[in-house]
């Protein structure tokens, strides 16, 4: 047990050091949602009228609507970035070092997942701070309530990245992940537009969005930011997280072998 905690601490420190070293990664993670917030949202503000839907109790501007979606975007990209680094680690060999230590493999993978989620949460709070300076602030209680929501959402999206990394053979294949996982997950969700808006265009697309775990992660964050609890979103996010984690553990099972590049 003590061994497991020592390893967890070391893995968290290593990820934090890597993150601090890669300042460009931090800046990119921050600039991406800010561009959406400042440029994209400003353009769409006039085009999209948003009626009062929970958790909002009044009419809101589009910028306010997309903040939770952009928090989710940070976590989605970070989850994928983390899985990209896992594939890189495997090609470079450092993943071998991790997997040959005398601790349960599931624990080692979970440590990596926890480390990447911690980084995601730091990025989200930085983004929320910049958004507040820009004039889009949340109720104070929301900043506290959102913390557990970010942990659950981050673990789910990190688990997705972990599962993908077990299936991807080479770094070059990662572009495919961008096209077939990140973009569909992001655009087919409630991050940029409410589901009722989507239903006006296509009921089928709305249904797909409603099934997308990323939608539920975003809604969990959205409600939490306003001090509210969305049980359905939490349930879906946890369920998806367990399924992704199951795939990840299965993918890294030594009986399946380590994929040869």
């Amino acid at each position: 047990m003590i061994d497991a905690m020592i390893a967890l601490r070391a893995i968290l420190i290593r990820e934090a050091l890597r993150f601090v070293r890669q300042r460009s990664r931090f800046v990119a993670a921050l600039v991406r949602p800010l561009v959406w917030l400042v440029v994209f949202a400003a353009g769409f503000r006039a085009a999209l009228g948003l009626s009062i839907t929970p958790p909002y109790q009044t009419y809101i501007t589009y910028e306010i609507y997309i903040v939770p979606g952009l928090c989710g975007m940070i976590m989605l990209f970070n989850g994928m970035q983390s899985s990209l680094s896992l594939v890189y680690d495997r090609e470079m060999g450092s993943m071998r070092l991790l997997l040959t230590s005398p601790l349960p493999r599931w624990w080692l993978l979970f440590c990596r997942l926890l480390a990447s989620t911690t980084i995601s949460i730091l990025q989200v709070y930085t983004f929320l701070a910049v958004a507040a300076v820009y004039g889009i602030d949340m109720p104070w209680i929301g900043y506290a309530y959102v913390f557990p929501a970010l942990i659950v959402a981050g673990l789910m999206l990190g688990a997705l990245g972990l599962a993908l990394s077990s299936a991807i053979r080479q770094l070059e294949n990662f572009a495919g992940v961008m096209n077939f996982v990140i973009f569909p997950m992001f655009f087919l969700s409630s991050a940029l537009y409410p589901l009722w808006k989507m239903a006006e265009s296509s009921a089928l697309l709305r249904d797909i969005c409603a099934l997308n775990p990323f939608t539920h992660a975003v809604e969990l964050i959205r409600f939490a930011l306003y001090g509210q609890f969305n049980a359905v979103a939490l349930g879906w996010t946890i369920l998806a997280g367990i399924v992704f984690l199951g795939f990840a553990f299965w993918g890294y099972d030594p009986a399946r072998g380590m994929k040869r590049g």
């Binding site: 061994d3 020592i6 390893a7 290593r14 991790l98 230590s101 601790l103």
Partner: peptide
């Protein structure tokens, strides 16, 4: 740091 990371993976701190 490389060595202490590895030591921790083997439960040493």
């Amino acid at each position: 740091r490389n060595l202490s990371y590895f030591a921790a993976l083997h439960g040493l701190s």
